[in-house]
Amino acid sequence: MSVADTRYPVVRADAPLVVFDFDHTLYDGDSGSHLFLWLIRRSVWRSLLALLIAPLFGPLVAFLPTRRLGISGFVWAGTVGLHGRHDLDALIDQYVDAHREQIRKRLLPIALEVFREHRENGDRVVVATGAPPELARAILAFVAHEDVPVVGTEVGPRLGGIGPGRHCHHQMKMTMLREAGFDSPMWKAYSDSSADLPLLQAAAEPVVVNPKHGRVRMFREVLPAGTPILNWGCPGRGGDPVQ
């Protein structure tokens, strides 16, 4: 049976809660960066604007405390002239439609199989991502999972463009999940990122997937003994290969 033909059971309110990160977990890469690079490259003047602000905002992206500010500069460069979230959502749909084959190739088959199994079991599955939620929804629609709840970074008007409001990242991801009604005890959480340690540590059974090689030792030290650290077919990333 194909993924598109699958019919999933109705999710009970008391079903086990399972949270998936999106980038480097279900999708090979940083979906938000791919989108905003496309937004910037739509015109020469946007590209020049991004180059102009890069010395200021670029270094900020590398550090967790300043990452939100750094990303916001490039988001702004790619969205100057837009008037709100609905304008951005329309461009997201345009971007996804224009890059269907490239995006489809980035969806990780092993990850999607695990995702599907949880849904077939009737688990309460949610995606929590630092990307705009419309982007994750549009990509998941390729594999008939567009009905899965997505919690993502909030965006809105800022200085003539679009900027992130609350970044669904680190501890804020936990806050936004609770506010969205996903406040029951978490059974499983899947993520690649050290920024998701609050998420992984909150889960009864955390699963690290596709981590950076340099972070594997840290995950083994801070997460419970025996925590799976897997590679779901993400080239250049760490974790034990899944056969």
Results as ranks from 00 to 15, higher is better:
184 S>T: 15
121 N>G: 13
40 I>A: 07
149 P>S: 03
155 V>M: 14
1 M>C: 09
93 D>F: 14
161 G>Q: 00
69 L>R: 13
214 G>S: 11
152 G>P: 05
11 V>G: 07
153 T>K: 05
37 L>E: 10
177 L>A: 12
179 E>N: 12
77 A>P: 14
233 G>K: 02
243 Q>N: 14
94 Q>Y: 09
22 F>V: 03
148 V>Q: 02
119 R>G: 07
194 S>I: 09
225 A>Y: 01
42 R>S: 05
36 F>D: 02
214 G>I: 04
115 F>K: 01
17 L>V: 09
224 P>I: 09
141 A>Q: 05
131 A>H: 04
138 A>C: 13
243 Q>A: 15
19 V>D: 00
145 H>E: 00
99 H>Y: 09
13 A>M: 06
4 A>G: 00
59 P>N: 07
26 L>A: 01
29 G>P: 08
143 V>L: 04
71 I>K: 15
189 A>Q: 02
97 D>G: 15
185 P>E: 10
198 P>T: 09
179 E>W: 05
20 F>N: 00
36 F>Q: 00
168 C>N: 13
242 V>H: 02
51 L>V: 06
93 D>Q: 15
183 D>L: 10
89 D>T: 15
110 I>A: 14
145 H>I: 02
145 H>C: 08
182 F>S: 12
10 V>L: 13
98 A>C: 13
36 F>V: 05
169 H>M: 12
64 L>S: 09
5 D>H: 00
211 P>H: 04
16 P>L: 13
219 F>E: 01
9 P>E: 02
39 L>W: 03
144 A>S: 14
201 Q>F: 08
174 M>G: 15
156 G>N: 06
55 P>E: 00
82 L>Q: 01
168 C>R: 04
16 P>I: 10
38 W>L: 10
186 M>T: 10
128 A>T: 03
2 S>G: 04
181 G>L: 15
80 V>Y: 05
20 F>C: 02
5 D>N: 04
51 L>C: 13
60 L>G: 09
12 R>N: 08
161 G>Y: 05
188 K>G: 03
140 L>S: 02
38 W>R: 09
169 H>C: 09
70 G>N: 06
80 V>E: 00
7 R>G: 04
226 G>W: 10
80 V>D: 02
115 F>I: 10
75 V>Y: 14
182 F>A: 11
43 S>L: 04
33 S>D: 07
44 V>F: 13
154 E>G: 11
230 L>R: 00
227 T>F: 09
203 A>K: 02
96 V>G: 14
238 G>Q: 07
45 W>A: 12
109 P>G: 00
